[in-house]
Amino acid sequence: MTGSVAMHMSDGLLNPTTSLLFVGVAVVGLAVATAKARGDLDDRTAPLAGLVAAFLFATQMLNFPVLPGVSGHLLGGALAAILVGPWVGALCVSIVLVVQALVFADGGVTALGANVTNMALIGTATGFLVATALKRFATGKVGLVVVAFVAALVNTVVASLGFVLEFAIGGDPAFSLGAVTATVVGVHCLIGIGEGVITALTVGAVAAVRPDLVYLLRGTTRPLELREGTPA
């Protein structure tokens, strides 16, 4: 494990039945996302969606310190959902996880279902729901950036609860679920701050140059129209 720069669940942390169960959850979720994503993809948004996936891959490599001896990395659900919508977003995160597992030996192959469930399905859904609920505050540059931060923070913590659920169903019963939960959720509250900062910076940067490409801003009455010559 030395030198690895990102790490998802390995094989063996969950029993085979539970791993298979979450492969099923992931397959059903991704089938729904694929069917729905079509409506959000056209000649203009499809290339952007491909780049969002590549950007997530790059950003997931950038582990940042959260505690002495502990790092964290972006999961990316809220970031993807805000930029390209929840359905395409879930597919973006999933493609990154598949590339990481199959090409970079990061994240077990049988654990892929659980990893997709947590980061792509739960993380993206949570990020999107929070961002949508707070959408009325996303007027103006500051509002949007704050909404992105909060959505990303919550997506990280809730995605980590996905692991807790999976561990409760099919983890090694020799270990106390309470202790595991406290550690996982506690550290992901801190990682969520980093996730929030990265998401806020990215969404803010995209919205500054191309607000028309930000999914969350669709249908809003031009809150971020660029006014040339006006100081920020």
């Binding site: 494990m1 030395t2 030198g3 690895s4 720069v5 990102a6 790490m7 998802h8 669940m9 942390l13 780049l51 590549a54 950007f55 891959f57 790059a58 950003t59 490599m61 950038l62 582990n63 940042f64 310190p65 959260v66 505690l67 001896g69 502990v70 790092s71 964290g72 990395h73 980590s160 692991f163 595991v180 550690t183 996982v184 550290v187 992901h188 801190l190 990682i191």
Partner: peptide, 24 residues
């Protein structure tokens, strides 16, 4: 931006175990 992050900034990444690894 993605290429620079993955190709250069990645050298600055913290190599300590991530949150999930830390827990396991």
């Amino acid at each position: 931006v993605a290429l620079v992050l993955a190709g250069a900034v990645s050298y600055l990444a913290d190599s300590n175990p991530d949150g999930l690894d830390h827990a396991t």
